[in-house]
Every structure is written in structure tokens, then in C-alpha cells.
Design a binder for these strands. Structure first.
Lengths: 217, 217
DNA sequence: CAGTATTTGTGAAACCCTTCACAAGAGTGA
DNA sequence: TCACTCTTGTGAAGGGTTTCACAAATACTG
């Protein structure tokens, strides 16, 4: 294990590690034993130097003249990303998006196990979503602590997102993935990431709208 | 309308424009007439210079000594992003994620109207999702053209994503938002953006795992 | 209406990320 | 073993994005 201490890793590098991980998964399925930075870069529309630089922040995993061993590199990236283990996750808000995510297989595949699901709607509480019973949001704090939840997925309406977020933090949760289209305030020691699917559509809309403008002054 | 031709706008700037747009929406609700770059930056955890620079790529929308007129700036950003109009969208693949997105209100709010929904599962075809009947994927090409679809949301299984993607492109669609965890190959003149919700969770996992390591050499 | 306080818009500087280019290591074949 | 090929790992260069800092413009105040 070539271990290195990390100074500061950019968000883009972390994002690409996830991308490499997925690429390696399918390379393994395809029967590859090793992969060169050149080939990996080609598949993911990146440059070979980028791939090598990203990996070099964490150690040297390759063999000169040969490339990277697929299986091993996959394992090493899993370790770096912290997905070589199980994370207990809770999901709050069983609306459209929430209930889709409860059954979203990509999460489970990467070791994110949804242990608790909450809502405050009496009609939803007690109902069964893919083997998980929806709990009453008023029991949330206690259950979050009891189930040793590390990460919370917030799929509640924007109007209550901050309130729910505050409760979650009170329960000691240190990482939140927020789907509500609001900017949540969290203390420095709590990790927050936002996911907003409309933003990607807006990016497409921008590009469609400004296709031509990218040339003239 | 202070118009400027655009040389190259970075992805981060476009992303932040979406963020500003949402911020302005709530500022308007809160009754603000004007907003300074300082205040807007504070709300979105950015720097005032960043806000001003982003906007300056497209024109000068503010008043010195006063700030930006909320309503007007909102309208101008909508124009820049191309969301001051209706976009006809089709969604392909009515699984967990797909059916959640059909009812996702943020899309409609920004003018993205889902006009067509497709699946190849006989049990789903003909069923009604929030007023839209699921069509047979084998009629896709014809219906995409007939309904004048500009953007396609792909929520099909990874294994068939490339095939469906190819069909969509054949129908003349020029923008695709892909939720399948694969790297789609598309021609240069087709816009593609990927959304992968697991990647954000992995980012949280990385940060939780490497919390401390960010110091030592 | 003059003086003061704000805040924009923007070149220039600073910073960060990506790409280049090459030495060094490892495999391959004669 | 030696020559040749391939590919990594990495300083340095290059390019792009963010921040700084300030002139210019406007609002506000007495």
C-alpha cells in the first residue's frame, strides 16, 4: 500500500476518481487485467496525463511499461473514496424523488445502505418501501442516533429543508446530501453537498441557446 | 439590453448562473427590489468579485452604489440560460428514477415540459403518469420528431443506454441528460450531460474518510 | 448641491488545475 | 544480455479561473 498524506485534493479529482472506479468496474467485467492511462483516458474523454496525475496524489499504483492492474486499482480507489465499507444512510422525505432513491440500486452497489426512511405524512408513515418501513419524522433524532447513521439524504420540500437539516445536525449527523433547491446553512464541521437535477437541464438549455455565440467578439 | 458576444464561458460560471437565478427567485419573494453582489455572494457562499465577474461576461446589469435590480436581473439570467421559454422534453425509461422525474416540479417551473414518456415494458406502456401516457419505445423516433422534442432525459438501465441514445440521436435530438452510469458516445454536434447521484454520495464518503488527512505531509 | 458612502465593472495579480515532456522503470524479443 | 518499446510518475510550463484592488458611477445626507 503506497500511502501518502494528502494536502488538498480538488473536487474535480475526487469526481474523476468516481468516474475511474466505474470505468474499472466495466473493464473488469470485460476481462481486462491491466489498463494504461492512455486507454482509460480515451474511454472517459480525458487526457492520459490527467489520469496519472489524479492517481499520483494518492500513491503509485501502476507498472511502467504495462499500466495499472484493474482489480487492484479498483480496490485502491474504493479505499480512497471510502466505499470499501458500508455506510449507514437515512433518507428524509418520501416524495417523488425520495421514494425513487430508496430503490436506487447504484447506492446499494457502492455500499450506501438506506437504514432509515422518514416522513411526516401520516399516510406514508408505516408504509413499506422496498423492505424499509417509513418512520415518523418526530422520532427522527432518536432513530438516527440508534441506527448509527453517517449520511442523510434530504428529499424534503424546500420550505422545510432548513428545519429538517437543523434537526439532523442536532442528531450528530456529519454529512448531508441535499436535493432541495435551497442553500442550507450548516456548521463548519458538517459536510454538505447539493444535488439539483434542474441545474443540469439548465446547462443544456444554455448550450442550446448559445451554440453559435461561442466565436465572435 | 446590454448585449455582448460570448467567447468562452466556463462550466462553473454557467452553474453559478443557475444558482443566482434561484437565489433571485427567493429574494423576490422576500420583497427585495435590489441586491448587491456582496449580499448575493454571502447567501451563496461565494465572493462578491465572483458574482460580478460572472455577470460581467454577459453585460452590465447593475447600478453603482445600489446593486442589481432583482426582478430585472432574474429576467436577464433567464434569457442567458435560455429558460425564458418552454423546452419540449421527452423522458425515456419509467423506472424508479424516471417516474420520479416525470412528476418533478422543478423541471416544469423552469419551463422544461415533459411532452413524451417512453418505455419498452408492456406493463408500463399505456399507463398514465401525471397526465402523460407512456408510449411504446418502438414508436419513439416518430413521436420525438412529431412532438418537436429538444431535450431527452435518459433514465434507462445502463445496459441499453447506448442503444437508446443512438436512436434518440437518429431522431435529431441535440441535447441529452443521461442518468445511466455509463459513458455515452455521441457525435460532436450533440450535447450530453451526465447526472449520477451516487457520485455525490461518494464525494461525501471521501470527505468523511479523509477528514484529517488534509494537513500533514 | 457639495461631500460622503456605496457598489459596480474590470484590468492585473494570484492561485489552481491541466497538460507537457522526459527520465526512469519494466516488459519483450533476438 | 542488449536494444527497443511501452508506460508510469512527476517537475515545470501553460492555461484558465478566482481574487484583488481601484477608478468610475451612482445614491444618500445634511
Amino acid at each position: 500500500m503506497t500511502a501518502k498524506k494528502i494536502r488538498k485534493i480538488s473536487d474535480s479529482t475526487i469526481h474523476r476518481l468516481s468516474v475511474y472506479y466505474r470505468a474499472l468496474l466495466s473493464l473488469e467485467k470485460e476481462g481486462y487485467e491491466t489498463i494504461s492511462s492512455k486507454e482509460l483516458a480515451k474511454r472517459e474523454k480525458l487526457t492520459p496525463a490527467q489520469v496519472r496525475k489524479d492517481l499520483s496524489f494518492f500513491g503509485s499504483f501502476g507498472t511502467r511499461g504495462l499500466g495499472y492492474p484493474v482489480k487492484q486499482l479498483m480496490q485502491q480507489i474504493a479505499e480512497i473514496l471510502g466505499i470499501n465499507r458500508v455506510w449507514n444512510v437515512a433518507l428524509i422525505g418520501v416524495g417523488n424523488v425520495g421514494s425513487a432513491l430508496v430503490s436506487y440500486k447504484e447506492f446499494a452497489k457502492q455500499g450506501f445502505v438506506i437504514k432509515q426512511v422518514f416522513d411526516n405524512d401520516q399516510r406514508k408513515i408505516g408504509s413499506n418501501h422496498k423492505g424499509i418501513v417509513v418512520s415518523d419524522a418526530s422520532d427522527m433524532k432518536r432513530l438516527l442516533i440508534e441506527s448509527d447513521i453517517s449520511i442523510v439524504i434530504l428529499t424534503v420540500p424546500a420550505s422545510v429543508a432548513q428545519l429538517v437539516c437543523d434537526d439532523v445536525i442536532e442528531a450528530g449527523v456529519k454529512a448531508i446530501l441535499n436535493f432541495a433547491p435551497v442553500n442550507l446553512r450548516v456548521p463548519d464541521n458538517v459536510l454538505l453537498r447539493n444535488e439539483n437535477m434542474a441545474i443540469e437541464l439548465e446547462h443544456l438549455s444554455f448550450s442550446l441557446t448559445n451554440k453559435d455565440m461561442l466565436l465572435v467578439e
